[in-house]
């Protein structure tokens, strides 16, 4: 009990610090960059619930993210719904997609699952391209609602993202510490053995894919207001897939801290590279760092730290 209270306090403190930072109004670029980094914290954490805990590598991250974003676009177009509604709806729709993907794991494991998720992303993108109401292939510009609760709209979105990332990390941490996390770890290591030991593998997998989908959709829902112009190529960008996968891999996939460390490090490095060198360079960095970590330090930074401590 004391422990969960402490977690709650730490979470609240982070949210408070975020809002304080938003109220400080330093250089606006800080919020722009910070939003992207926090968005990656949410995405990396969401990816890790399925990829790290359950061992199902999802290449379809852009599908879930863009589905969240396009659900928001649809609601903005049709009803001009407020931001909290957009976030809830985005999470709900992406969560349903996650549930569907979960049933796919009945037949597809390992590599085949990964390729199927990649295929899913492209099929969804084609459907969005051909759906004129949400902008089709040309894209759609979205007008931000006037009068955010505080600061400029970007600082407001930044604060929202702080809240969302704290929420995502809390969910991941809770899953990791509960019997659900242990069940997922069991099926990651050997699905047949876990099933034989009485672990409800299907229910756990469905739970993991759904939660992962919800969080990715939630990360995508504020996206239209952030960029103010949504088009399929950027929303379904495969860069999200490699980033959402590289960040937990670099940080460490077995613990909730891993994706956060990875997202903050890699996200910051990319923001710096985009400003100082070129935007293509940042993907190159991701690729090289990803391959280097997978080959040399498969346990990620968390694993490295543990090894040093263990000695």
């Amino acid at each position: 009990m004391a422990r969960s209270t402490r977690t709650l306090l730490v979470g609240l403190a982070v949210v408070g610090a975020g809002i304080l930072l938003a109220a400080l109004r330093v250089n606006p670029y800080v919020y722009f960059a910070g939003y992207v980094i926090l968005q990656y914290v949410v995405m990396a954490t969401a990816w890790n619930i399925l990829g790290g805990y359950a061992g199902y590598v999802n290449f379809g991250t852009p599908a879930f993210f863009a589905l969240g974003a396009y659900t928001a676009v649809f609601l903005i177009q049709s009803t001009r719904a407020p931001l909290p509604v957009l976030i809830l709806a985005g999470g709900l729709v992406s969560g349903l997609l996650g549930l569907g993907i979960g049933y796919l794991t009945l037949r597809l494991r390992g590599v085949f699952f990964s390729i199927a998720t990649l295929a899913l992303s492209i099929v969804l993108q084609t459907m969005i391209i051909n759906w004129e109401y949400v902008g089709g292939s040309r894209g759609l510009s979205v007008i931000r609602p006037s009068g955010p609760p505080f600061g400029s709209y970007v600082t407001f979105l930044f604060a929202v993202m702080v809240l969302l990332s704290v929420m995502a990390v809390t969910v991941a941490r809770f899953i990791e510490r509960s019997w659900v996390g242990r069940g997922l770890a069991a099926l990651r290591d050997n699905e047949e053995a876990a099933e034989c030991m009485g672990v409800p593998t299907l229910r756990l997998k469905l739970f993991a894919t759904t939660v992962s989908g919800v969080l990715l959709g939630v990360a995508g829902a504020p996206f239209p207001y952030y960029v103010t112009f949504v088009e399929p190529t950027s929303a379904f960008n495969l860069d999200y897939a490699v980033n959402a996968l590289a960040m937990p891999m670099i940080g460490g996939t077995t613990s909730w801290v891993g994706p956060v460390i990875g997202a903050v490090l890699l996200g910051t490095a990319q923001q710096l590279a985009t400003v100082t060198i070129s935007s293509e360079m940042n993907l190159f960095i991701v690729g090289v760092v990803l391959v280097a970590f997978v080959v040399l330090a498969p346990e990620g930074i968390v694993g490295l730290v543990r090894r040093v401590r263990g000695r």
Binding site: G55, A246, E280, M281, G287, L290, V294, V295
Partner: peptide, 22 residues
């Protein structure tokens, strides 16, 4: 091999692609 190998090749894919565009 299966999962980490997959991630490894995904990284290689991006390295080749981005090297070419650079």
């Amino acid at each position: 091999e299966s999962l980490r190998g997959l991630v490894f090749f995904f990284g290689v894919l991006f390295i080749i692609e981005v090297s070419l565009s650079l």
